[in-house]
Design a protein around this nucleic acid. Structure first.
Length: 283
DNA sequence: GGTGCGATCGCCT
DNA sequence: GGCGATCGCACCG
């Protein structure tokens, strides 16, 4: 039995007190430290709103999305999803949890067996295409298509980086009046919550995350873009229990210890520990 | 903190 | 007609 201490990522102390402006300043500071990116072929210099005009940012383009589904699902971790609202407000969240849906033989996928319908057409479109679908009559989920016929990655959770107060307002609109105010870590810790918080609507279906003016993906401002393998938990996907062997495959990925992950899987984390212990013994 | 349950409707069979 | 890649809330310990 080994015990180990891990550095837990944490949100700002204030949790909900940081203003959008302060968050923006903090991000600009982080950005000013970022000088190692910009030469990669899947990066595109992208001019940002006045808040961020001190420096160009880097938007991820087609060649980033054009990779196999599982690799893309892992690669999404640490990247920043940006949503620009009609009034110019930019909402930002770091992706901390994803799931891969492979299409074809993957029975839990909407595109299982290569089945193509009006709803899931976006899954068959070019990598980077957004697939938004309604679930349980009242919620939405957002996916991004990858390489592979009918394959896509479900975005499950974000760590809010800026625009938290706007996100809180968007989330509150669907809750009971007078309900307790949401903490920052509760704003985007679930696939439908992040759609609400970023105002991702059904009409975003089939849009291109690489080129759209209202939603895009960026490198992590804190340079956590290269995520060490030890930090990523691989676990079975959520809510697909009825799909036999495909329910148990390790196609969910999340940043270990991150407070914004929607559902922890302690068994998967223990398995990782015992595996790394075994690896050490072998070495 | 964890668990159980109801809401609610588009999509597919 | 049945079900679902979910969520919020009440209830329990």
């Amino acid at each position: 039995m080994t015990t180990r201490k891990r550095n837990k990522p944490s949100l700002p102390e204030s949790d909900s007190d940081e203003t959008e402006c302060e968050a923006a300043k903090r991000l600009v500071q982080c950005r000013s430290d970022m000088n190692t990116v910009g030469h990669n072929d899947h990066l595109l210099h992208h001019h940002l709103s006045p808040y961020f005009s001190m420096r160009d940012s880097v938007r991820l383009t087609y060649s980033f999305f054009n990779q196999p589904c599982v690799e893309l699902a892992k690669d999404f971790l640490g990247k920043v999803l940006v949503r620009k609202l009609a009034d110019g407000t930019e909402l930002r969240g770091k992706i901390v949890e994803t799931e891969a849906y492979l299409g074809g033989e993957d029975k839990a996928s909407h595109s299982a067996g290569g089945k193509r319908t009006e709803r899931n057409t976006a899954m068959f479109m070019k990598p980077g295409t957004i697939y938004v679908y309604p679930i349980y009559g009242i919620y939405l989920c957002m996916n991004v298509s990858s390489q592979g016929e009918g394959a896509a990655v479900l975005l499950r959770s974000l760590e809010p980086l800026s625009g938290q107060d706007v996100m809180r307002g968007l989330r509150a609109a669907k809750r009971k009046p007078g309900a307790k105010s949401l903490k920052d870590r509760e704003l985007c810790n679930g696939p439908s919550k992040l759609c609400q918080a970023l105002d991702i609507q059904r009409c975003f279906d089939r849009r291109d995350l690489a080129t759209d003016a209202e939603v895009w993906l960026e490198m992590d401002p804190e340079k956590e873009t290269i995520v060490g393998a030890g930090e990523v938990v691989m676990a079975p996907r959520i809510g697909v229990e009825s799909h036999g062997e495909w329910a148990t495959k390790l196609l969910r990925f999340y940043l270990r210890g991150h407070p914004c992950v929607s559902v922890l899987n302690k068994d998967a984390e223990r398995r990782m520990d015992s595996q790394s212990d075994t690896d050490r013994t072998v070495c």
